[in-house]
């Protein structure tokens, strides 16, 4: 279990994250939504242990992560960062290898094979990073993070994604989220994803945390949390809710009032 208990983050006198609580379960996909500057990335960095919490605690696998080493953390969570690194002259296979450096010998090769298959990257494996498109780069970084988790022997494993679908077209993004949800179910991995696309979260997330100005506004089951009035308040915009004829799909689109005059 990955749990935030009244976690806050202060940097240079500015409050980036007000005390927030959240529980992400294994096998579930939890989306973190909110306008730009709401503190979504900061919250993810708190969860990954990269930023130490100013107050409160982050509990992973029963331990406060502030007391754990980077290697301990790396066995239990992997992160796809917002800006995927693209060092010059690297092959995709070299990138994937970095994820299993600290794994037990023998675990690495199998983990890489499995991660490549799961993220559909087998055609990219010999390519150089600088020749990849933005979307392909995000896919190989997802594969890299999966390698790290698959090489681990721990049962509590979390995948943290910071806008990992931002460079994908909407079909690819939807396919990736479907795949992530499958991975979460089948491998019993908890996925926590910072996202911008409301409808993608609505379709794929089990749980949603809404953030605004560093405050957690609501957390719970996706269908309960993602209500029109609440989203309008958070984004400061009027929305229209569209429901498909058989009521199986909901979607929100911006619907500002017609201009006067």
């Amino acid at each position: 279990m990955l749990e935030l208990r009244q976690v806050s983050l202060l940097r240079q006198g500015k409050t980036l994250v007000q005390p927030v609580s959240l529980q992400a379960d294994l096998g579930q996909l939890c989306a973190i939504l909110g306008p730009n500057g709401a503190g979504k990335s900061s919250l993810l960095q708190l969860m990954s242990g990269y930023q130490p919490a100013s107050s409160g605690s982050v509990i992973l696998d029963g331990q406060d992560i502030a007391t754990q080493t980077p290697a301990w953390l790396a066995c239990r969570r992997a992160v796809v960062e917002q800006h995927p690194a693209c060092p010059e002259g690297w092959c995709v296979s070299e990138l994937l290898a970095t994820a299993v450096y600290l794994a037990a010998p023998g675990q690495g090769a199998a983990a890489i094979r499995q991660a490549v298959a799961l993220s559909h990257c087998s055609d990219l494996i010999a390519r150089r990073l600088e020749t990849l498109s933005g979307g392909e780069l995000q896919r190989v970084h997802l594969a890299r993070a999966l390698c790290q988790l698959l090489a681990s022997t721990q049962t509590a494993r979390y995948l943290l994604l910071d806008e990992a679908t931002s460079a994908l077209d909407f079909a690819m993004a939807d396919a990736m989220m479907t795949q992530l949800r499958r991975i979460a179910r089948e491998l019993n991995i908890g996925v926590v994803a910072v996202m911008h696309d409301l409808n993608l979260a609505l379709r794929h997330a089990d749980q949603v945390l809404l953030l605004r100005d560093g405050c957690g506004m609501a957390f719970g089951k996706t269908a309960d949390i993602m209500q029109k009035q609440r989203l309008e308040a958070i984004y400061g915009i009027r929305l229209a809710e569209l429901i498909s004829p058989d009521a199986s799909i909901r979607a929100f689109v911006p619907h500002p009032p017609p201009e006067q005059g």
Binding site: Y50, E81, A85, P87, E94, T98, Y101, Q148
Partner: peptide
């Protein structure tokens, strides 16, 4: 050498990969 490789991905990624950056 592993750290030197990981650092080329940035300090944040190196930390996420489990290195005492």
């Amino acid at each position: 050498w592993r750290l030197l490789n990981a650092l080329q991905l940035g300090e944040m990624t190196a930390f996420h990969l489990g290195f005492e950056v």
